[in-house]
Every structure is written in structure tokens, then in C-alpha cells.
């Protein structure tokens, strides 16, 4: 999709910075724009609560599709009694269609549908966001106890935000898997919301050659 005036920006939500994210970019031999977003500025700006999450933005800076899971493959991963399914093939097919067709794409949301999906933050969510930023600041300043205080506050205020929880758990790697599993098993909603997309359009059948008259 290179020469269609389309770019991809990846933003690592890693307070650990390049040291945490860099090797993954190297491994992926990334050819897109690679950001190291140590303060989760992208998640904060677009109300993302998990990774991977994507938004599509058009040439005028208008959001075509707000936050949704941004996988590229379909897989089902089993964790204990529950599982997580990704819908990457559908996501990428929709993306290709939009890149080609722009506003005419069936994957470009109407204003009404956009309004249904994007809601103002609640006051608890706003306070969680401000608390998380404070935690990132104190972490960077070496004030680990104050950082922990505000990692926790952010999670209490917005328990649906996996980015807050998993960022904090990453600093105690031995516990991170167990912490994740406990929270995941208690979850009463989908870990990734189901992609709400029309089925990809089938290739129009080629017209049979017209008989010569």
C-alpha cells in the first residue's frame, strides 16, 4: 500500500523507552514510522485502553475510525478456561479498502456511527489519565514509590485500562504473567472488543467476454 499517499505510524507504549521497545522494532525490520511513546501520549489522546489499538486518520486530519483492535493476523490464544481471538485479516482488508477508496469506502464511518463509538471521558477516567502521567513523571525522576502510588491510583480509577496495569506490571517481570492472568480470568467482558466492521467486499466477478456480433 506504499504509493497511495498512505503511511503507518507505530507508537510503542513503553515507559521503559527505546531500551524496552527498540529490539522489537529491530526484529520486525520496521519500515514504517516508529515512535517510542514513553508517556502513552497516543493512548491518552485517543482513549486507547489496550494494545494493539489503531485509528485511521484521513488527509484532512479527520478520524475515519476511532479506537479498535489493530491486529494483522487471525489467531485464537487459549489462557486457562478462556481465550482471546484476533481479527487481523478483517482489519487489514478493511484498511486496504479505505486506503484505496477513501470516503467512499464502506469502512469509513458515518458521523452518527462515530458519535456512537466515541464518548467523552468520565471524571474518573480523566483523573486516571492525569494520575498515570504523574506516575510516568515520577518514574522518570527516579521516585519509584511515588510512581507506584499513581500507577495504582490510575488503575483503581479506570480498571478497564489494560495499558495502565500492564505498564506497571512490566517493572516486576517475574510477577507480570501471574498478574495478567488473574485480571484476565476475572474479566467479564471481551479482552478485545469485537471488530464492528462490514464483511469485506467480494471481488466483483469479471464480466464474461461479450460475444462478437
Amino acid at each position: 500500500m506504499k504509493d497511495q499517499n498512505f503511511i503507518v505510524i507505530a507508537a510503542a507504549q513503553d515507559t521503559g523507552g527505546e531500551a524496552a521497545a527498540g529490539k522489537w522494532y529491530d526484529q520486525a525490520k520496521a519500515t514504517y514510522i516508529t515512535l517510542v511513546d514513553s508517556q502513552h501520549a497516543v493512548s491518552s489522546a485517543f482513549q486507547f485502553v489496550n494494545v494493539p489499538t489503531g485509528v485511521w486518520i484521513d488527509e484532512r486530519g479527520r478520524v475515519v475510525r476511532p479506537a479498535e483492535p489493530a491486529w494483522t493476523t487471525n489467531q485464537t490464544m487459549k489462557f486457562g478456561a478462556k481465550s482471546i481471538s484476533t481479527e487481523g485479516e478483517e482489519y487489514v482488508a478493511g484498511l486496504r479498502d479505505w486506503v484505496k477508496n477513501g470516503d467512499r469506502s464502506v469502512f469509513a464511518l458515518s458521523d452518527q456511527e462515530f458519535a456512537r463509538r466515541v464518548k467523552p471521558r468520565s471524571s474518573a477516567e480523566m483523573e486516571a489519565d492525569a494520575s498515570f502521567k504523574l506516575a510516568v513523571y515520577f518514574y522518570g525522576a527516579g521516585a519509584k514509590e511515588l510512581a507506584a502510588k499513581y500507577w495504582h491510583r490510575a488503575q483503581q480509577l479506570n480498571p478497564d485500562d489494560w495499558n495502565y496495569a500492564r505498564q506497571e506490571w512490566s517493572f516486576t517481570p517475574a510477577e507480570a504473567g501471574k498478574n495478567w492472568m488473574e485480571k484476565f480470568q476475572k474479566l467479564d467482558q471481551a479482552y478485545y472488543p469485537k471488530l464492528d466492521m462490514p464483511a469485506p467486499a467480494k471481488e466483483a466477478p469479471k464480466e464474461p467476454p461479450k460475444p462478437q456480433l
Partner: peptide
Amino acid sequence: FRGKKVLLFTWASW
């Protein structure tokens, strides 16, 4: 990147 279509996505090492 105004003037281009953008896919902006997040990921993380954790």
C-alpha cells in the same frame, strides 16, 4: 502528516 492517510497504532513490549 497532514495530506496523507494515516494508520496510527499502538503496541508495547510488555
